[in-house]
């Protein structure tokens, strides 16, 4: 039951993030939208892990390992994007 709720919430986050990423023009908002979208994907993946658990385990460990990697990658992507936005702002200030 709870896995279904988490899955649906994850799907909702994916929807919100995708909308923001496609519609917003501002770079910072799009980066935030990308993070929402990523969070939604990780939640869906977590629900998949819960549902796929067998042999008395609380959850399937493979998706959890993948989520951890995914979070690190998303964090790196965010820092890279923010650094780029800062450089761009500095370049605009210079003229």
């Amino acid at each position: 039951m709870s896995a279904t709720i988490f899955g649906l919430l994850g799907a909702a986050l994916v929807g919100i993030g995708l909308f923001g990423l496609l519609v917003r023009r501002d770079a910072l908002l799009r980066i935030l939208a990308f993070n929402l979208l990523g969070g939604g994907v990780f939640l869906v993946f977590g629900a998949v892990a819960r549902r796929g658990a067998g042999a008395g385990l609380p959850a399937d460990p493979v998706p959890q390992a993948i989520i951890l990697t995914g979070i690190v990658v998303a964090f790196a992507a965010t820092t890279l994007a923010v650094a780029l936005v800062l450089r761009l702002a500095a370049a605009k200030d210079r003229g």
Binding site: L21, F34, G38, F45, V48, G52
Partner: peptide, 21 residues
């Protein structure tokens, strides 16, 4: 480029999640 690429990779990752499920 980064925005397009990030959208692409996150959609790909969602596909991976569903495929694994």
């Amino acid at each position: 480029y980064l925005m397009f690429a990030l959208l692409g990779s996150v959609l790909y990752l969602l596909g991976v999640a569903l495929m694994y499920g």
